[in-house]
Design a protein around this nucleic acid. Sequence first.
DNA 1: CCACTATGAGTCATCTTGTCTCATAATGGT
DNA 2: ACCATTATGAGACAAGATGACTCATAGTGG
Lengths: 195, 195
Amino acid sequence: MRERTDPRLLRSREAMVAAATELLTESGLEAVTHQAVAARAGVGRATVYRHWPGLLDLRLAALESGMPPLPPMPEELRTATGGDPRTELVHRLSVLAERWDDEQAGAVLAAILGGSRHDEGMRRLRESLLEQIADALRPAVAAAVARGQLRSDVTPETFAMATAGPLFFERFLAGNRLGRDTVETVVDAALRAWA
Amino acid sequence: MRERTDPRLLRSREAMVAAATELLTESGLEAVTHQAVAARAGVGRATVYRHWPGLLDLRLAALESGMPPLPPMPEELRTATGGDPRTELVHRLSVLAERWDDEQAGAVLAAILGGSRHDEGMRRLRESLLEQIADALRPAVAAAVARGQLRSDVTPETFAMATAGPLFFERFLAGNRLGRDTVETVVDAALRAWA
DNA sequence: CCACTATGAGTCATCTTGTCTCATAATGGT
DNA sequence: ACCATTATGAGACAAGATGACTCATAGTGG
């Protein structure tokens, strides 16, 4: 039985995923087709069909590679915050904001929002994105609740809505880049609102 | 010179726009093509090309018809609020939330978010959407500032970020319908945060 | 009643899509 | 070093989509 170790398979797969991600970033999900990916990856068209028989499979691969998990909070930074929830919240949301500042984020998010109503795979991606954000905020929200800085009924999901929501709005509806000042403003507003 | 009054022109145009909007709602922007619109509208393929020679023109027409201007605040309701900013804010945002609850809203917004990076027309649509929201909140925000319920540096744009942002997040990222309770929660949080 | 014009049907060349075959060469086990 | 395995690129192919065109017809405005 074949393992997943054939270098040819990995090489071409890597090239195709890279090409698909580029196309997604540059021209949106519509531009991700077997033909376009093959051409850009320098690969036979049939090869793309072999790896992802369906168009949705191919596009899902592009989207997945476009939204890797958020890097975890570095331990040295966590201790450096002195356990201050606000500092940690600002840091976690800055990581998110930085990612959303990236060019490809808009393409990925728009595709997920639009596609999740029709496609199960995209719905999964949307939910995992939501979970990613909530998980990133979970420890700091818990700490803030423990210290009485947030009401005890504030969940990570609620706090995500209160912070990631405005950031999303500012970035993708207003079209503005997200600086650390914006993140701090949003975090402070949420802390005031839910104290 | 021909006026825009030829009934044939208006009839077929109306049928095509309706068909395009349906396709957009049901299957996303990608499904809006000259051929599909012609088939659904019961119209010749050439006719669709005559009205919108380019694919982007056609899709823009579908998007525009999918985001008509928000209805203005009814005068009787405005007086009924007794000039209370919170009540008016809740009302205005409930109108927005109701629209976003609609099935087609997700398709329209996702298309605009994704397309506004590449297409000038979609960028215009995105900006007009933003303006729509800010304008809807403008009088109530001004009133709240005048009464000292909001800091004097809070603009309609800021308040839109603080309220429409979370609503957008809740509706399209978390996938939850927006009830009046959600709107009230969000408005109250924003009023606390920016008092 | 008539000149006008939007329309539907159709044709046509070109491109895209999905499936298939086959020779080739890289690969892993022996 | 050898060989059976297998992923690949090139290409053929039918079916369908695309965009531009022509033309007879019928609804329209004067």
